[in-house]
Design a protein around this nucleic acid. Structure first.
Length: 963
DNA sequence: GACTTCACG
DNA sequence: ACGTACGTGAAGTCA
């Protein structure tokens, strides 16, 4: 058996993959579909061919000789779409990471390179498989050179294969004659002109009689039919030029030798990194665990301390050495007390955060006495530089080295070390609190582990690399140790799930704990122990090794101030807010649930009666069939995977049939019951409070998000739903003060756009929507109608969202044309706003980012898309993000100012919720006036805008009353 | 796990 | 011609 070589036409296959695979992007907005398709095709070919050698050829985007000759023909070609162009260097990097030989040579076309190598290989007696998406290469087919053309058909891909005889069978000419064919008939795809008037039929006829174009012209008198003869005569120059253009060269001078293209293991760890970065999850399986775990470069010098005395000695020495910075990680599990499976964050994929979020349907492991503990502390790791190298020490919590002891040790170290680097400080604060057994007193969440007597000092001392990475790119979906290592240390470390699968860290620890202490572990256990300790060590190692790079990037991008003065304090006060929680009255919740239940049951039977049968009302699919097929209601308006039954569609059908309003009510009530009545109940802990999470590293714009449960979407707009705000109560001796900003986003717009009209209106304290209506519709201020005001309000919202005529028309219930008119009038009235929005779009196009007033940035990759819809989306993002993001910055600043003031004044009042433009403060009755003043003054002075920043405060015993 | 729907700012 | 408002999270259905 002779050896095999596979040659791939890089651009052609990438192109085919791009158009054959639906658009895919990773979490950063990188397009990956072409890369994904390319790799799939390549893997499939390698699987079937099992070659010894592999080479991929690419064109270089510079005019080559052959390009030069017919660039006037190729000049008409459409440029490559941006989404594809981005992927060209990526696939080359991936292939390189796989150790695959890539040939791209200035001055040569990929076709010519492939032709040359194919002939070279054939001459060496090898079997050649040439993979390309188009048929240009068929001329190279011989009995040793096979042309493979992958076809992307639904339900899997097929490959068309051509040796000499296959070409003859299909085209009626030999491979070599394909060149002559093209000389005669041309090739529209390649813009080869051919002889005018000669098509496939004639060309084949001629080439049946004469083996080549040259011979046909030599015996031109014998060419039949006569018409063809005349055409040939007229187009002689074209025929020869075309043939030349169509000829693939096989004698290029390449600095290439086949033995260098020897195919080795392509599933390298470098390639695995790429696959993870691109988030091509289905390809991950192809990499064996060896490739996954074999690091390019791995942290080393791991130590594990077990005895108290060892730890003490270590701490003393560390303090004596006094490194500038130490990486620290408190590790453990987050856990739930409710016995109910908590929902995980939807947005997680490849990497995970340092701690495991897993369900706890199983009986809790230990420590049942204190079921209010949300977190389980398991140990501590420290990492620092010594003699030019990093050393890392892990200590598991055990009977000797218990929580108190470890906290004491850490406190000692922290006091003497100027700088601490860590991953996800907020999480770590929770774990230190647990380690200290602060759980008894959650309302005084001042932890011993961190000296918070001087907050400025604290915020400057701590570096949270996760937050830094979020600021640098807020589009990622996780900022765990593995992510930081990959993105900033150029290092591969396994993610949590790669190491431990779905097990919780506490399970791993309890498995090995005793043996680890006794040093009596067998081989197998040692693997587990090492795995665990490596993992825990990496948490602090990555923090200390990565923080410099991250912080210098923050400096370069102008975000260091935002990081130090906004994000780090935010992390700290969010921790405090989570720890304090908000009181929830389960009795109110149960009452509401009962009320809803009664209504739901009633509605349900009414709906069945009206429909004439029972069905699942919650199934849009079944509902659609009932409404639009069985009941034949008109306007089965929208479809995607069926009929749309969304509220705005149903709303329009209300007068058609009484069933519609019943369904709308049913929807509303079941939503309230499942999401709020039942949903909230499971989160009420033993202290009668809900300790939701406020995530700082989720949103693209800088807002905070709320989960488990989401406390930022408690109903308010509908009467019935609004009742749920009565669940949230201030504890005894306290009331709620609820402070919210008035139209913060529009005020930010006024400030950033510097529009005089808007600024003046705000300075006057005018009703802003009325003012807009008055100006846009040329109506005296006092004569503005309700409709005009409503329309103006919708436009103001639209502006903030990144206006589009269609979106506005949807909202107003008018035509696109009318909406367009209104927008035109608006921009005529407020030219500075128009200029501002245009400028933001331009800026995003030029820099790739949107920026807030405080320097926070958001990448907008969509804005360069060749797809109209995507690009428009990018433009709206570019208009909205600076506004929404700046408002988010402002409320973060306000929150920090308020929380600091409460602390400085040693008040008992605490912020318990943040809802984007609102702060809810559980206020001690004796502090009401003071806190009111603190809220208003600090919120209003959070930013210097060109318009007044207004905050309004209300008071109540529950959230219903206070808002 | 994708898709719909709907709660909030 | 394209088919939408910006930013989130949770629950339910269905394959």
């Amino acid at each position: 058996m002779s050896e095999k070589i596979v040659l791939i036409d890089g651009h052609s296959i990438l192109n085919r993959a791009f158009y054959g695979v639906p658009d895919l992007t990773n979490s950063e907005g990188m397009h990956t579909n072409a890369v994904y398709g390319f790799l799939n095709i390549m893997f499939k070919i390698l699987d079937t061919e099992k070659p010894e050698y592999l080479t991929v050829a690419f064109d270089v985007k510079k005019p080559t000789f052959r390009h030069e000759m017919f660039k006037e023909y190729k000049g008409t070609r459409k440029p490559m779409p941006e989404e594809l162009r981005q992927q060209v260097p990526v696939i080359q990097d991936v292939l390189e990471a796989m150790g695959i030989t890539i040939v791209k040579r200035q001055g040569f076309e990929a076709d010519d390179i492939l032709g040359t190598i194919a002939k070279m290989a054939e001459a060496e007696g090898k079997e050649v498989t040439l993979v390309s998406g188009d048929r240009d290469l068929l001329q190279l087919a011989t009995k040793n050179i096979k042309i493979s053309i992958p076809k992307t058909k639904k339900g899997g891909s097929e490959v068309e294969e051509y040796h000499t005889e296959d070409v003859i069978e299909k085209y009626g000419v030999t491979p070599v004659q394909i060149i002559d064919m093209k000389g005669l008939m041309g090739d529209t795809a390649d813009n080869i002109p051919g002889v005018a008037g000669v098509g496939e039929k004639t060309a084949v006829k001629i080439l049946k009689a004469f083996p080549s174009v040259e011979e046909a012209y030599e015996h031109i008198e014998e060419v039949e039919p006569k018409r063809a003869r005349e055409l040939l005569r007229a187009g002689k120059d074209m025929a020869f030029l075309s043939k030349k253009l169509a000829t693939i060269k096989t004698d290029c001078e390449l600095d290439y030798s086949i033995k260098d293209a020897k195919l080795e293991n392509i599933f390298t760890s470098e390639a695995f990194e790429w696959i993870k970065k691109l988030e091509l999850k289905s390809l991950v399986k192809k990499f064996d665990s060896e490739a996954m775990n074999k690091a390019v470069e791995r942290p080393k010098n791991f130590k594990y301390l077990k005895k108290k005395i060892e730890v003490k000695r270590f701490a003393d020495e560390l303090i004596k050495d006094a490194p500038e910075v130490v990486g620290v990680s408190f590790f453990g599990d987050e856990w739930s007390n409710s016995g109910v499976t908590k929902k995980k964050n939807k947005k997680k994929s490849g990497g995970q955060m340092a701690f495991v979020f897993d369900d706890i349907s199983a009986v809790s492991l230990e420590d049942e006495s204190d079921s209010t503990n949300e977190y389980l502390f398991l140990g501590l790791s420290l990492s620092y530089e010594k003699n030019g190298e990093y050393e890392t020490v892990s200590i598991l919590k055990n009977d000797e080295t218990d929580g108190d002891f470890l906290i004491e040790t850490y406190k000692k170290i922290q006091k003497k070390i100027p700088h601490i680097a860590l991953i996800d400080w907020k999480n770590e604060l929770h774990l230190t609190a647990v380690a200290e057994n602060l759980s008894e007193d959650r309302e005084a969440p001042l932890q011993m582990a961190f000296d918070d007597s001087d907050l400025d000092r604290l915020f400057n001392k701590i570096s949270d690399v996760s937050i830094a990475a979020y600021l640098i790119n807020p589009l990622k979906d996780s900022y765990g140790a593995d992510d930081i290592a990959r993105d900033y240390l150029d290092m591969t470390i396994p993610s949590y799930s790669e190491r431990f699968g779905k097990s919780r860290l506490s399970e791993i620890v309890s498995e090995i704990d005793d043996d680890y202490l006794r040093e009596s572990a067998d081989e197998e256990k040692n693997v587990v122990i090492n795995n665990l300790l490596e993992y825990t060590g990496e948490l602090s190692y990555v923090a200390v090794a990565g923080y410099k790079n991250l912080e210098s990037t923050l400096e370069k991008t102008g975000m260091i101030k935002l990081y130090r003065e906004v994000e780090m304090p935010t992390a700290y006060f969010l921790y405090q807010m989570e720890r304090v929680g908000v009181k929830a009255d389960i009795a109110v919740l149960e009452q509401l649930a009962k009320k809803l239940d009664r209504k739901i049951i009633e509605l349900e039977s009414d709906i069945y009666d009206l429909a004439g049968e029972e069905f699942n009302i919650n199934s849009p699919k079944q509902l659609g069939v009932i409404l639009f097929e069985k009941m034949k209601l008109p306007f089965a308006k929208k479809t995607k995977t069926g009929y749309s039954t969304s509220a705005d569609i149903l709303e329009k059908l209300k007068k058609e049939d009484p069933i519609i309003s019943k369904i709308l009510d049913y929807r509303q009530f079941t939503k309230l019951k499942s999401t709020y009545a039942e949903g909230l109940a499971v989160f009420i802990e033993n202290d009668k409070r809900i300790h939701g999470k406020f995530n700082q590293m989720i949103t693209a714009t800088g807002r905070i998000s709320s989960t488990e449960p989401n406390l930022q979407n408690i109903p308010i707009r509908m009467e019935m739903g609004r009742e749920f705000r009565k669940v949230f109560k201030a504890k005894d001796g306290f009331v709620f003060l609820d402070a919210d900003y008035s139209q913060i986003e529009l005020r930010v717009l006024a400030d950033m756009s510097e529009d005089e009209h808007l600024i003046q209106a705000y300075k006057n304290g005018d009703d802003i929507h009325r003012s807009t209506a008055s100006k846009v519709f040329h109506t005296p201020f006092d004569e503005v109608t309700d409709l005009q005001r409503r329309n103006a309000k919708a436009v103001n919202f639209g502006i903030v969202y990144g206006i589009s005529a269609f979106g506005l028309s949807q909202d107003l219930g008018t035509t696109r044309k009318e909406a367009d008119e209104i927008i035109k009038k608006y921009f005529a009235t407020y030219p500075a706003i128009k200029a501002f929005l245009d400028e933001k779009v331009e800026e995003a196009k030029e820099t790739g980012y949107s920026y807030t007033k405080f320097g926070r940035r958001r990448p907008v990759p969509e804005i360069k898309s060749s797809n109209f819809m995507q690009r428009s989306f990018g433009e709206r993002i570019a208009m909205n993000s600076p506004i929404q993001g700046t408002a988010a910055d402002i409320i973060k600043i306000a929150m920090i100012k308020v929380a600091r003031k409460l602390k400085e004044e040693k008040l008992k009042s605490r912020i318990v919720l943040q809802v984007h433009d609102e702060l809810l403060v559980e206020t001690s009755v004796d502090e009401i006036e003071k806190v009111k003043e603190i809220l208003i003054s600090n919120m209003q002075s959070a930013a210097e805008l060109k318009v007044p920043l207004i905050a309004e405060v209300e008071q109540g015993d529950d959230w219903f009353e206070a808002h």
